[in-house]
């Protein structure tokens, strides 16, 4: 019983993280845009949801108390706008340069969340953020079952939509840009605009995950959006197999599962005196999984499926 309840909780977290990984897969796996500021857009989504729906408090600037679904819609819009602004400033950068620039933006977004007290609640964060439809459920257990349906539903929807997109003509052009931007431009494709579109769409998906996460926890704090999360999401995508949406979801499941399982194992088997070293071992394990994947299974657990055009036979 307890295990089932925990597994449902685990599945909720995995489905929310999977949505981020799917968004990153559109940017990196399909288009080759190196976004190292994942956590920034996740934060924008989460904070927008909280700001729009939270109960009014005199010390806050915004007291809209909107219904949760509008909070989610607002999160999508806000993260899209943020991504558009960031994209316009950075999309002409390549590779490592783009990575550092986007990373810096994520740090800046976290600092704004931490310091703009009137809007975000500052370092305290915001408590009592409404959880979608929580009034309809008697016990925490049934509510979590409902929330799993909700988050898994959004995850499936995202998966389905992104699958459609990568197989569309637009998706094929994105891959062409990833493989050889020069050739794509020579064929008359507007590479810069297409990269920007993929970047904005992927970041919007990350914003959705942020809204779902905050809605689930009922609390938002700037310390939930630390840079290390970006690295964790990247590890998930690479381990699962970038370029493949199934791989993105599988990678999230494997890496987060390994993380939770190793934590449990450490708290069970290590003697009390060595417990404090356990956390370091957990992180080393994640690092090892990443390096070993790159060395021995460079495509990830499920590599990219060869996508040849139907006409090419």
């Amino acid at each position: 019983m307890g295990i089932v309840s925990y597994l449902i909780f685990f599945a909720i977290v995995v489905s929310i993280l999977s949505i981020i990984t799917l968004g990153l897969n559109l940017q990196w796996g399909s288009t080759g845009v190196f976004n190292a500021g994942v956590v920034g857009f996740y934060a924008v989504g989460g904070y927008t949801y909280a700001i729009l729906t939270a109960p009014g408090r005199p010390e806050l600037l915004v007291n809209l108390e909107l219904p949760w679904i509008l909070g989610v819609v607002g999160a999508l819009i806000a993260s899209a706008i943020a991504a558009l602004l960031v994209g316009l400033a950075t999309m002409k950068l390549r590779g490592d340069y783009l990575a550092i620039a986007t990373f810096g933006i994520a740090v800046t977004i976290q600092l704004i969340a931490l310091n703009w007290e009137g809007l975000t609640g500052g370092s305290l964060g915001m408590t009592s953020v409404p959880r979608p439809l929580s009034g309809f459920f008697e016990t925490p257990f049934t509510y979590n079952v409902f929330y799993l349906c909700l988050s898994a539903g959004f995850c499936l929807l995202t998966y389905w939509a992104l699958e459609r997109i990568v197989r569309s003509p637009w998706g094929r052009v994105l891959r062409a840009i990833r493989e050889d931007e020069g050739a794509a431009i020579a064929l008359g494709k507007d590479a810069a605009t297409l990269r920007l579109q993929a970047f904005v769409l992927g970041s919007t998906v990350m914003g959705l995950a942020g809204a779902l996460y905050v809605g689930f926890i009922g609390f938002v704090s700037p310390f939930d959006f630390v840079p290390i999360i970006t690295f964790q999401i990247w590890t998930m995508l690479i381990v699962g197999g970038s370029g493949n949406n199934k791989g993105a979801v599988l990678g999230t499941l494997v890496v987060w599962g390994l993380w939770s399982a190793s934590g449990t194992l450490i708290s069970k088997i290590l003697p009390a005196a060595f417990q404090t070293q356990g956390g370091a071992v957990q992180t080393i394990l994640i690092g090892l999984v990443l390096v070993l994947t790159l060395l021995f299974k460079p495509g990830g657990l499920i590599g990219e499926e060869p996508t040849t055009s139907r006409h090419a036979g």
Partner: peptide, 20 residues
């Protein structure tokens, strides 16, 4: 359980302790 100072990790640990 280690929470690493991260809310997400702490919540996961709490859920594990309470449910499992």
């Amino acid at each position: 359980r280690d929470d690493q100072g991260q809310p997400t990790v702490g919540v996961d640990a709490a859920k594990y302790l309470v449910e499992v």
